[in-house]
Simulated assay, not measured.
Amino acid sequence: MADISYLEAWRMWLDGQSTLGHELFGVPMIWLGRAGKVAAFISGLTILVDIAGADHLRAVADRLTAWREGITFVAAVTLGVWVLSWGMHSLPAYPIVDVDVPFVGDAINGVGYVIGLAIFIAVVGTMALQLGSGMAVAVQKLVTAAAVMLEHPRAVQIRLVALLLLLVGFHFDLLAS
């Protein structure tokens, strides 16, 4: 990879040549472009959070907390159903039934399959609900942190850094295209 200067990179870009395959400041242009995309994305999120406002973000965090508490309740109920169905499935029903009675053995087998399916659904449902609850906690903490950031005395500097990130990120993304 050839190392090019900043002005040479702009000259190449203005002439319609690709700067990919070259290095600028010792860094491959593809990585500068990717870093520019990430910087612009983070800046855009900061700007969107600023538009939403701290009050709206706190309301979202409160809704996430209520949702998470609901998920915990549903997960507890699902776990109860799972334990109950497991207990029902473990009952020694087969020796009690007279095998010579038509369709009874098949009916008990069918009930066993339904109970097994209920157990599977309960276990998978509980795992999914707990995963959703954990993700809700993480998102709630991020949203609350964003609201606190907006109310910080130096929020103006945060906005200026976001604007600078947007400009620099877009600049390097454009230069690497």
Rank of each mutant, 00 (worst) to 15 (best):
residue 29 M to S: 00
residue 132 G to W: 06
residue 17 Q to L: 14
residue 151 E to Y: 11
residue 97 V to P: 06
residue 45 L to Q: 13
residue 101 V to Q: 07
residue 108 I to F: 07
residue 75 A to N: 03
residue 27 V to N: 00
residue 3 D to K: 06
residue 117 L to S: 13
residue 109 N to P: 01
residue 55 D to I: 13
residue 138 A to K: 13
residue 159 R to F: 12
residue 138 A to M: 13
residue 141 K to S: 10
residue 168 V to Y: 01
residue 41 F to Q: 12
residue 24 L to E: 05
residue 169 G to C: 12
residue 160 L to N: 12
residue 95 P to V: 12
residue 15 D to L: 15
residue 63 R to V: 08
residue 66 A to M: 09
residue 177 S to D: 14
residue 105 G to E: 01
residue 146 A to H: 03
residue 64 L to N: 01
residue 20 L to S: 12
residue 59 A to H: 03
residue 135 M to Q: 13
residue 64 L to C: 00
residue 154 R to H: 13
residue 104 V to Y: 11
residue 114 V to A: 15
residue 12 M to Q: 02
residue 113 Y to P: 00
residue 61 A to K: 04
residue 85 S to H: 07
residue 95 P to R: 05
residue 105 G to D: 01
residue 38 V to C: 05
residue 137 V to Q: 11
residue 34 R to I: 10
residue 6 Y to I: 09
residue 74 V to T: 10
residue 132 G to N: 11
residue 19 T to V: 07
residue 126 T to M: 08
residue 4 I to S: 00
residue 112 G to T: 08
residue 111 V to K: 13
residue 51 I to N: 01
residue 170 F to Y: 06
residue 53 G to V: 09
residue 24 L to M: 12
residue 4 I to L: 01
residue 113 Y to L: 15
residue 49 V to K: 02
residue 90 S to E: 09
residue 102 P to H: 07
residue 121 I to K: 00
residue 172 F to A: 02
